[in-house]
Design a protein around this nucleic acid. Structure first.
Length: 199
DNA sequence: CTCACGATTGGA
DNA sequence: CCAATCGTGAGC
């Protein structure tokens, strides 16, 4: 499949524009060994200014600082003291916003994934915590990294020549939040078995 | 400085 | 339904 670099201006749009457009894009994880795993993004959520569920809602802090920087960088945070979540920073510098990458359809299963999880191979990255666990993504190593492919980073984005048709995408409300519950900023690929949860 | 809680997950 | 597990940030 033909792939190409994501134009930086494209990610510089508001997160609720970028989030659905990221569906069908590829996330590539390259390890220190040089080996890669690749997944198609099948589920995303947008977080933006004015949105009470957004980590950047109140003000800039040490944790959310990357969200206020330029688009096209990783924002990785720890949730519930045990899982990491990966976001793509969006919009213009100074605007605290990002897209949470909630699920990937992986091309191959990493060797270290335990037997139990191989029982449902298309579910090994079906959820934001699982995705980071499976691809060894964490805050210390990956928060603030660029997602531009040509820099040879540990993580990057590519997008296919043929974007997903809009009729293949479902839009609904976001998962696991207690504020901003009615904002319909979650998108997923209709019927894809790697989607964390249908609604 | 304290402490309640969270953009989750797996197991009872 | 509930525990695991700990960084964050609001509030005193």
């Amino acid at each position: 499949m033909a792939e190409s670099v994501i134009p930086s201006a494209w990610l510089g749009q508001p997160s609720e524009v970028v989030a659905p457009a990221l569906l069908g894009c590829h996330l590539v994880r390259q390890y220190a060994s040089g080996h890669c795993h690749r997944g198609v993004i099948v589920e995303t959520e947008a977080y933006a200014p004015g949105d009470p569920a957004c980590h950047a809602y109140r003000r800039q802090t040490a944790r959310n600082a990357v969200m206020f920087g330029p688009a096209g960088y990783c924002y990785v945070y720890l949730i519930y003291g045990m899982y990491f979540c990966l976001n793509v920073v969006t919009d213009q510098s100074g605007v605290g916003s990002a897209v949470l990458v909630r699920a990937l359809a992986l091309d191959t299963i990493p060797d270290w994934v335990p037997e139990k999880k191989r029982r449902y191979p298309h579910r090994v990255a079906a959820g934001p915590g699982l995705l980071c666990q499976t691809l060894h993504i964490n805050r210390d190593e990956h928060n603030g990294l660029s997602l531009q492919p040509q820099t040879g980073e540990a993580i990057w984005l590519e997008f296919p020549q043929d974007p997903l048709p809009s009729n293949a995408i479902t839009q609904t409300t976001r998962i696991g939040i207690t504020r901003g519950v009615d904002i319909p900023w979650r998108w997923y690929v209709k019927g894809d078995p790697a989607v964390s949860r249908f609604k």
